[in-house]
């Protein structure tokens, strides 16, 4: 199994290191033909405006939009913004993989970035036996605003969803790749394995 990481820009290397630790090979994805080589894709944190520009310049936008409809996908921060069906602050294009509205920079600027413990809710507990709190690193993070009822919430922070899932598609507004834990990566790899 090979897992792709969209590598147009952003927090790519920390994900590579996590996957390597877990014994899984990864592929930096920049071009459309690479999508055929992977079992799932991570859309990492970075700047969503820059990624949109580069997705189009490299002609990956449409193939990726098709890919994320049916293949295991995990969007983190900017990646979760790409997966939404509506983006605000400001409005911008998205891949429409998840029926959610998302607001960019919703907590504020860098001075409002923070780290806090995240307690898993019941849905996560039914997926995973490890129920200790995890470290949530939020950097100029977005917030999920409107979430369709068929989307499951795996982690919340102060009553607001920060990690969600629908079928094979995951989105988190925080950065597990910047912590010492591999738990969320393992969870995503399970999704890739089941799908494969």
């Amino acid at each position: 199994m090979k897992v792709g990481i969209l590598a147009l820009q952003g927090s790519v290397q920390p994900h590579e290191e996590k996957l390597k630790t877990l014994g899984v090979s990864s592929l930096q994805v920049r071009y459309p033909e690479q999508l055929t080589e992977i079992s799932g894709i991570i859309l990492p944190g970075g700047e969503s405006t820059s990624m949109i520009q580069l997705l189009k310049l490299n002609q990956v936008w449409n193939p990726l939009k098709e890919f994320v409809k049916t293949n295991p996908t995990w969007g983190i921060c900017a990646g979760s913004i790409l997966l939404a069906s509506r983006v605000t602050n400001p409005m911008q294009e998205c891949l429409e993989a998840l029926e959610i509205e998302i607001e960019r920079n919703s907590y504020g600027r860098q001075n409002e970035s923070f780290i806090d413990k995240l307690t898993p809710n019941e849905v996560w507990k039914s997926f995973c036996s490890k129920t200790d709190p995890i470290e949530g690193v939020f950097i100029r993070a977005p917030k999920f605003k409107k979430i369709q009822s068929d989307i499951q919430v795996l982690f919340e922070h102060r009553g607001e969803a920060v990690m969600i899932q629908k079928n094979q598609c995951l989105a988190s507004t925080f950065h597990p790749e910047l912590t010492d834990s591999t738990l969320i990566h393992q969870y995503f790899l399970n999704l890739c394995g089941q799908h494969h």
Binding site: A7, L8, G10, V12, G45, E47, I139, H175, L178
Partner: peptide
């Protein structure tokens, strides 16, 4: 450094 990580490759 987390924010710097997000700016890589840019």
């Amino acid at each position: 450094t987390g924010l710097a990580e997000m700016l890589k490759g840019g």
